[in-house]
């Protein structure tokens, strides 16, 4: 398997995210066989496909609950980003604190800013 190349910025962010994980139970380690999608940021931290997608032969779409299992409560996340300008992306009038993580943060594709283009000047950088 080819070595994953993680841009410095992304690596730093990952560290940030992972340090935020409760319990810190997800030790980085070798990845199982050729299973890891090369696009996965999580993979570089030793997280296997099955940890998110389940063990069944037919891989299921990852529900938001799965993200929260490691990354913690949505309200806590919203509190942590309360000062983000021009507005808190994790607490908004469309979804409150319950926007599905996957709407912006993609694991196997470039993440996107759902607020744009409706909200001009909400130029968030989405990790």
């Amino acid at each position: 398997m080819k070595q994953m190349i993680v841009p410095k910025q992304a690596a730093a962010l990952l560290v940030l995210l992972l340090t935020a994980l409760p319990g810190g139970s997800l030790a980085a380690g070798p990845v199982v066989k050729g299973q890891v999608a090369r696009t996965s940021k999580h993979a570089t931290q030793g997280i296997t496909c099955a940890q998110c997608h389940g063990k069944a032969a037919k891989k299921s779409v990852v529900a938001m609950q799965q993200c929260l299992g490691c990354h913690g409560d949505t309200k806590e996340l919203a509190a942590r980003t309360a000062q983000v300008k021009p507005t808190n992306p994790h607490e908004n009038r469309h979804f409150g604190t319950e926007a599905d993580c996957n709407r912006c943060h993609h694991e196997h594709a470039t993440s996107e800013n759902l607020c744009l283009p409706c909200h001009l000047r909400f130029g968030f950088k989405v990790p």
Partner: peptide, 17 residues
Amino acid sequence: MPDDPSPKKGVFESQVN
């Protein structure tokens, strides 16, 4: 006016143009 520093009232700040 998004370029004007005055505080905005009764509008969506991200929609004024």
